[in-house]
Design a protein around this nucleic acid. Sequence first.
DNA 1: ACCTGAACACCGTTCAAGT
DNA 2: ACCTGAACACCGTTCAAGT
Lengths: 236, 236
Amino acid sequence: MTQPPWQPITPAKPTRTPKEPLNRERIVDAAMRVLVESGYDAVSMRKVAQALGTGPASLYAHVANKRELDQLLVERAAAQMRFDEPVDPARWQEQLKAMMREMLRAMRANPGVARAAIGAVPLGERALMSTERMLTLLKAGNIPDQAAAWAVDLIPLYVTAVAFEETVQSATDWKPEDVERFISGLRSYFESLPADRFPLTVALSGVLTSGAAGDERFEFGIAVIVAGLASLAEKN
Amino acid sequence: MTQPPWQPITPAKPTRTPKEPLNRERIVDAAMRVLVESGYDAVSMRKVAQALGTGPASLYAHVANKRELDQLLVERAAAQMRFDEPVDPARWQEQLKAMMREMLRAMRANPGVARAAIGAVPLGERALMSTERMLTLLKAGNIPDQAAAWAVDLIPLYVTAVAFEETVQSATDWKPEDVERFISGLRSYFESLPADRFPLTVALSGVLTSGAAGDERFEFGIAVIVAGLASLAEKN
DNA sequence: ACCTGAACACCGTTCAAGT
DNA sequence: ACCTGAACACCGTTCAAGT
């Protein structure tokens, strides 16, 4: 009505213009959105481009390839890890376990990122801060240098493997009841094995099929790893 | 020349007729061939079908889907593992490590199978024999039942993760010199970090970038895990 | 019962052409 | 310098039609 005629009438797009230029950050944002919403297998160059309202070819001006995009997603997840508690040398084992729990939490919060993390060497600033903190804790525990160096490789590998395993299993889109039926079928199967050839598998069928879900398995794993590391401490 | 005219002349295909019927075994054979020759990413239903001289649709009469084919490949690799040494309770830790080495060897001999193994529950006979043997060794070490049960999950998970990581890295088709350049670049990068924020990363840059290839990392991992398990032994 | 061709709905990546 | 449409060479899976 009162619109001055010399000002062209444009559809109101206040916050974000449609032709906002592409850049790495916007691409990773979009990829992260697809990742969280639809899982790793859905994160294709095409889907990410679509989420940005463009074609796949446009992404290649900012990202070398899918592999590099994966790396950027891993760094995003690493940046979400919080290690705020000051290092307490006396509690190095407990603090190392807390770090592993936090790593798993961040990976779970970004389903699919574990897959991308497996071959990756974490070099972003946040990832380096994690490494430095792990080394600090390990040196607090008198772990020799070379062992500490290998440990900062072993620890993320284990956490990532657990997270990746979970995403593979959840990709089957089984309902909880399906999982339960599978587990109980597994138990019956173990129980039905010939006891002369598989005595322990039969005898332990109960515990073999318990705690498969939940965090007990992970807690066991980090307890074993931290205890194993502690056994390498130099006497002094 | 001396060929009797009433016998039709056919191209000589002595050992294998072209229309030998498809079955699971032939499909897995072909998939294994593709896997070893070209890696996991090349194992597509189409490539496997092509190797059998047919189309992808033909496979679905014998194999439910790609996932099931993966499972069959894992069982093949599990069947190649050899655990011949009789169980010696006094040497349970060393024999457990030997099992882990043999698992890794079999996975490496079938590049790509690790990827397929990650979500899989190993249920073939050979896999069950591995599980039974692991349980025997763990009970020889006085490991409590529930811990032993979780350990037979943790052990293959770790070995598989190492093998998978290797295949991901080898999928980059870097030459050895490229890897070496990357490693030395990494060391320079660690050395160049601000020493006030990353003192240990800087100080340990040497060991952090050594033994990345080779088996030392794996030997470290199995030593940590076995030592951690040993620490859980019941006193008696 | 088993096999097949053709189709459907997808991939990652490249490239010449546009702005 | 950045973006795009179209193409290339692939995927897993389904299905009607053949033998």
